[in-house]
Structures are given as structure tokens and as C-alpha cells.
């Protein structure tokens, strides 16, 4: 009998995913930022710029974070299982890799505000915010970073939950997708109290002022979503059967 072989690099999956995803995120963000700032200049040709364009554009990357979560469980997890890794070690490493990718994305999105600040300063435009945030001005970078981290975390967790359900059985997806969407709606509402009317009730319950946002409440809601999504996802993937491949 042979000794059980071990891959020399115990974190090979996390490294592999991070390397691929970090490069993809950098490329996509570069294109995204170039497009957003070009669009701002295009708008400036017709009307004065009074608001942060980056704030509006930042709606899109959260969907990307959700997509990363879906890919994590519906695409990469089965791939790594097929290449001789267990569900447990794949999920552990994929979670680490996704956390790294989300952090990079949050840093880049925060950097977008800084770049926009420089451009607006040169052009003489005010970098006003429309929505409520954890931060009250577009140069409060630590809180901007924290908000993106919290948002992307919830979106990725919801995506991973929905992705695992859809892969396991599309019928489960009918249940999981609304639950995942509910998670992100609650998270968004916690960060932007004007997001939905019912946030007043949620905000009141959590001690959030209607015209402000509490870092504590946002953290509690993010952790709550994670506390719901993590075990639910694990329940779905711990014995996930791989779908059959067609020749």
C-alpha cells in the first residue's frame, strides 16, 4: 500500500483561484473605471456634473460579487472535486480565495472614489453623494472600504448559497434565489436606509437612525446574513453529487 499522496501546496486551490481571479478583477476593474470616467466626461459635455458618478456605477460590482459566489459553488467546487479534492477542503480554500478577491474588489472600488476625487478636483466638480452610506463624504476611505467589504461579502455569500442550490437541483434554486435576494436586500437596506420603506422598521429595531447609517447595525446584519448563508450552503454542498458529463 502506498502512503497517501499529498499535494505539496496545501493551499493550492486558494492560490490557483486567487491568481486567476485577481488578474481578472484587475482587468475588469480597469475597463470598468475607464468606461465610467469616460461616461462622466461625456455627460459633462451636455450638463454640469454635480454628483459622484462612481457612486452610481458602484451598483454594478456588487452583482459581480454575487456572480463570484455563484461560480464558487456551481462551477469551481465541482471542478475541484473532479480533480481529486474533497468538498470540505475545496470549500475552505474557495472561501479564503473569494474573501481575498472580494477584498481586492473593495479596495479597487474605494480607489475609484479617490481617482474620481482627483478628476473632479481638477475639473472643479463637486463630488456629492446621493445615497446614505456608512460614510458621509466621498473621501472617508476607511468607511468606504468597510461598506464595500460588507456589501460584497453578503452578495458573495448569497450567490454561493443560490449557486449551490441551483447546481444541486434547479428546483432548490427556486427557493434559494429569493432567499439570497432577501439577504442582499436587507444588507442594502441597512447601508442605505432610504432603500426600502421597511428599513424604517428594521432600522428602528436595530437602533439605526432613519437619516443615518450605523456601522454596528451593518456589521450585525452582514454577520447575520453570513450566519444564515454559511451553514445553509454547507448543508447543500457537504455531499454534493457531481452532475454527469456528456462525451
Amino acid at each position: 500500500m502506498n502512503a497517501a499522496p499529498q499535494t505539496a501546496d496545501r493551499w493550492v486551490l486558494a492560490r490557483h483561484r486567487l491568481r486567476d481571479d485577481a488578474l481578472g478583477i484587475l482587468l475588469l476593474w480597469s475597463g470598468f473605471a475607464a468606461f465610467v470616467f469616460a461616461l462622466v466626461f461625456a455627460v459633462a459635455a451636455f450638463r454640469p456634473i454635480e454628483l459622484s458618478g462612481w457612486e452610481t456605477a458602484s451598483q454594478i460590482p456588487r452583482w459581480f460579487a454575487g456572480g463570484m459566489g455563484i461560480y464558487m459553488t456551481a462551477v469551481y467546487l465541482p471542478l475541484y472535486i473532479a480533480h481529486g479534492f474533497t468538498r470540505r477542503e475545496s470549500m475552505r480554500q474557495l472561501t479564503v480565495a473569494t474573501a481575498g478577491s472580494i477584498t481586492l474588489l473593495a479596495v479597487l472600488m474605494t480607489l475609484g472614489y479617490a481617482i474620481e476625487r482627483g478628476i473632479y478636483a481638477v475639473a472643479g466638480w463637486p463630488q456629492e453623494l446621493v445615497q446614505s452610506h456608512l460614510f458621509d463624504h466621498a473621501s472617508n476611505y476607511p468607511l468606504i472600504l468597510l461598506e464595500f467589504l460588507l456589501l460584497f461579502t453578503v452578495w458573495a455569500a448569497a450567490g454561493a448559497f443560490a449557486g449551490s442550490a441551483i447546481y444541486r437541483n434547479p428546483a432548490y434554486g427556486l427557493f434559494a434565489v429569493p432567499v439570497g435576494l432577501a439577504m442582499v436586500v436587507v444588507s442594502e437596506a441597512a447601508l442605505n436606509p432610504g432603500f426600502l420603506e421597511f428599513v424604517t422598521a428594521i432600522g428602528g429595531w436595530l437602533g439605526v437612525e432613519a437619516d443615518g447609517v450605523s456601522v454596528t447595525a451593518s456589521l450585525v446584519i452582514t454577520l447575520g446574513c453570513l450566519a444564515l448563508a454559511t451553514p445553509a450552503t454547507w448543508l447543500l454542498v457537504r455531499d454534493l453529487p457531481l452532475r454527469n458529463q456528456q462525451a
Binding site: 502506498n2 497517501a4 499522496p5 499529498q6 499535494t7 462551477v75 469551481y76 465541482p78 471542478l79 472535486i81 473532479a82 480533480h83 481529486g84 479534492f85 474533497t86 468538498r87 470540505r88 477542503e89 455531499d239 457531481l242 454527469n244 458529463q245 456528456q246 462525451a247
Partner: peptide, 23 residues
């Protein structure tokens, strides 16, 4: 050794179904 969810066992197996699992 039990195969299911055992890193020492599954790492020693390669099952190619159809054209193999690729992204």
C-alpha cells in the same frame, strides 16, 4: 480507506467522465 470525502483517497483517484471535467 473510505473514499468519500477522504483527501488521502480522492487525491489518488482520477475519474474521467465523458470528455473530462473542465471549465
Amino acid at each position: 480507506q473510505q473514499v468519500f470525502e477522504n483527501p488521502g483517497a480522492v487525491r489518488r483517484m482520477c475519474c474521467i467522465r465523458g470528455a473530462g471535467d473542465t471549465v
